[in-house]
Computed example of a mutant assay.
Amino acid sequence: MRVAFVGKGGSGKTTLSALFSRHLARSGEPVLAIDGDINQHLAEALGLDEDHLDAPPLGAHLPEIKDYLRGTNPRIASREAMIKTTPPGRGSRLLRLLGDDELHARHVRRVGDVPLMVTGEFDEGDLGVACYHSKLGGVELYLNHLIDGPGEYVVVDMTAGADAFASGLFTRFDITFLVAEPTRKGVSVYRQYRDHAREFGIRIAVIGNKVTGEDDLLFLKEQVGDDLLTHLVHSPWVRAAEQGRTEGESDTLEPHNRHALDVLRQAVDAGPKDWPALHRHAVEFHLRNARAWADEATGLDLAHQVDPDFVPGPTALN
């Protein structure tokens, strides 16, 4: 299952992404965390001790990723013809989660119990000439070509606020958790996400964060209604971890917050895996990008890259 964490900057979505990833990993389930935020802090939230993560970022290796994933697909003539939205077809290289392949071997590093991939930072060389969403192309291509099985999890810490709508990446998940503080600004992103989610049939659930009492909880219930799944209370353990005063283990997390993580896991597992919908969204946003800019940029009709006979899902591995 593919899980996205979104929310206003400072809402705690990176902290929740790390807590949930660690929670899954400690239960023995295959899990991969991906840092897709412009502020690359997920490794630190997972407990990285070093100054930086020794993992080549996806955003810096898009040409190699394209070459690998296009495989022998006859509809994709070259890496230059492949854009971030290009969907898989017959002949494409499909991925198993944490499989024995060169993409995972190159880009995945463990931070504690959790395998992690990163998109890379928005650096000085990008200023004025690129947008951060160009770096997220590696994540979009990865998810488009991933065949994740039962009991396998991908947890993505997304960009903050409405920036997540700048590409079709927001449609690539089985469920999206929106982290909201009990403030008007905290729930404003929820309203934007709710409307887009309804348009594309995307499952969303709200996680209240930094809740200090009944008034906070009542505010969230009034603002988001039945979309409120659970909430986390102020956590001295999380604050200590952020200050480097714990060993990164979650078994000392407060009982209420541990229960909230269980609720998230139950919500993820309760949802269906809709392969046709995931592929349909991938194709739709590919065609949108082709018409908007990519046909002109490549000099090709990129609608031709859509393989009408490709059947998404586990059967495609055969």
Rank of each mutant, 00 (worst) to 15 (best):
P312F: 10
G313V: 00
L300H: 03
A294G: 01
G299A: 11
G299R: 04
A277H: 13
P276A: 07
H279D: 06
N289C: 11
H279E: 04
G299Y: 07
Q266D: 15
T298C: 12
D307E: 11
D301E: 11
R280V: 01
H304L: 14
D295T: 06
P272F: 06
K273D: 02
D269M: 05
A290K: 04
P308D: 04
P272H: 12
A297D: 12
Q305V: 10
D295W: 00
L300M: 15
H304Y: 10
W293R: 05
A282F: 01
H286K: 05
P312T: 01
A282Y: 02
V306I: 04
A290P: 03
A292E: 14
A270M: 03
D301S: 08
F285M: 06
E296H: 06
A292C: 00
F310T: 00
G271P: 07
D309Q: 12
A270T: 06
E284K: 14
P272S: 14
G299W: 03
V268T: 09
F285C: 02
K273G: 00
D295R: 12
A282I: 04
D309A: 13
V268N: 00
D309C: 02
P276Q: 09
K273Q: 13
R280T: 10
A282G: 13
A303G: 15
A270E: 10
A270Y: 01
A316P: 09
D269I: 03
K273H: 13
A294K: 08
P308M: 11
K273N: 02
R280W: 05
A270K: 04
